Simulated assay, not measured.
Amino acid sequence: MIARVLSIAGSDSGGGAGIQADIKTITMLGGHAMTAVTALTAQNTCGVTKVTPVEPDMVAAQIDACAQDIGIDAIKIGMLGSPAIAAVVADRLERLGVPVVFDPVMIATSGSVLADTATIAAFERLMKIATLTTPNVPELAALGGDAALDALGIAYLAKGGDAEGDDVIDRLVIPGAQARVWTAPRIVTRHTHGTGCTLSSAIATRLGEGASLERAVEDARAFVRAALLAAPGLGRGHGPLGHAAIRDFQSPVSNA
């Protein structure tokens, strides 16, 4: 059986982030991608022009449909769209008992706001359910910083792609353990749309295969870096990654 991975996230009409990036990532890493769409967005590499949240009961119905037939080995959560959707997702996840990777999406790569204050306030419940939360620099600040997340007693990956400097530093914090830090040279490119979505869905796929959290993060980071280097150069703004151009990517997990 291959890993059955459910992405709960918004769609991206430009194909660079959200559900579309998740499907590409999960598929390229050998998993079976399923979706529960939380919002429809009109966007491209230059920005988001319109967002329409899906009704919460429809989000719940999508999750139930996947769980009741195909089954779920891991879940990735991205853009939620509203506090009501966040609540219904949390209700379902508490019953499923599978690894969950929560990417607390608040702002698109283009700078467009994708979560209002009330939705962000609903994130705490999901962070407590999640196996791992993956905030970038501004998201970590909006969530109260390291002190707030440490107080919750949760595992989180503090991503450093939005920080300054020649190196990208990612820090995995697991309660009761020493933090694991990865440092790598920054890949200088404007084609970074969907990096967070790709990373979180890659981690979820590896967790669904049975990898440890640290190994899943390490493998996912390698996948994202390969996709950044293979970006096809599409669009006038922040272009998509090159998921489909890395068919020869070899997973440390699958080779272990």
Results as ranks from 00 to 15, higher is better:
Phe123Leu: 05
Phe123Lys: 05
Arg125Glu: 13
Arg125Val: 12
Met127Lys: 11
Lys128Glu: 13
Lys128Ser: 09
Ile129Glu: 05
Asn136Asp: 12
Val137Pro: 00
Val137His: 03
Pro138His: 00
Glu139Ser: 01
Asp146Gly: 00
Asp146Asn: 08
Ala147Lys: 14
Ala147Asn: 10
Ala147Cys: 08
Ala151Met: 04
Leu152Ala: 10
Gly153Thr: 14
Ile154Tyr: 05
Tyr156Pro: 03
Leu157Glu: 07
Ala158Cys: 05
Ala158Trp: 08
Gly160His: 05
Gly160Trp: 00
Gly160Ala: 04
Gly161His: 00
Asp162Gln: 06
Asp162Thr: 01
Glu164Cys: 06
Gly165Trp: 12
Asp166Tyr: 00
Asp166Ser: 01
Asp166Val: 03
Val168Glu: 00
Val168Asp: 06
Ile169Ala: 08
Ile169Phe: 03
Asp170Ile: 01
Asp170Gly: 01
Arg171Thr: 07
Arg171Glu: 09
Val173Gly: 00
Val173Gln: 01
Pro175Phe: 01
Ala177Arg: 14
Gln178Ile: 03
Gln178Phe: 02
Gln178Met: 09
Arg180Pro: 00
Pro185His: 09
Arg186Gly: 02
Arg186Glu: 02
Val188Ser: 03
Thr189Asp: 08
Arg190Leu: 02
His191Ile: 11
Thr192Arg: 10
Thr192Ile: 11
Gly196Ala: 10
Gly196Val: 02
Leu199Ala: 09
Ile203Tyr: 03
Thr205Asn: 15
Arg206Tyr: 15
Leu207Glu: 07
Gly208Trp: 10
Gly210Gln: 11
Ala211Met: 14
Arg215Gln: 15
Ala216Val: 13
Val217Lys: 12
Val217Pro: 06
Ala220Phe: 09
Phe223Asp: 11
Arg225Trp: 06
Ala227Ile: 10
Leu228Lys: 09
Ala230Phe: 08
Ala231Ile: 09
Gly233Val: 11
Gly233Ala: 12
Leu234Thr: 13
Arg236Gln: 15
Arg236Ser: 14
Arg236Gly: 12
Gly237Tyr: 08
His238Ala: 15
Leu241Ile: 07
Leu241Trp: 07
Gly242Pro: 09
His243Leu: 04
His243Asn: 06
Ala244Glu: 15
Ala244Lys: 03
Ala244Tyr: 03
Ala245Arg: 14
Phe249Trp: 15
Ser251Glu: 06
Ser251Met: 04
Pro252Glu: 04
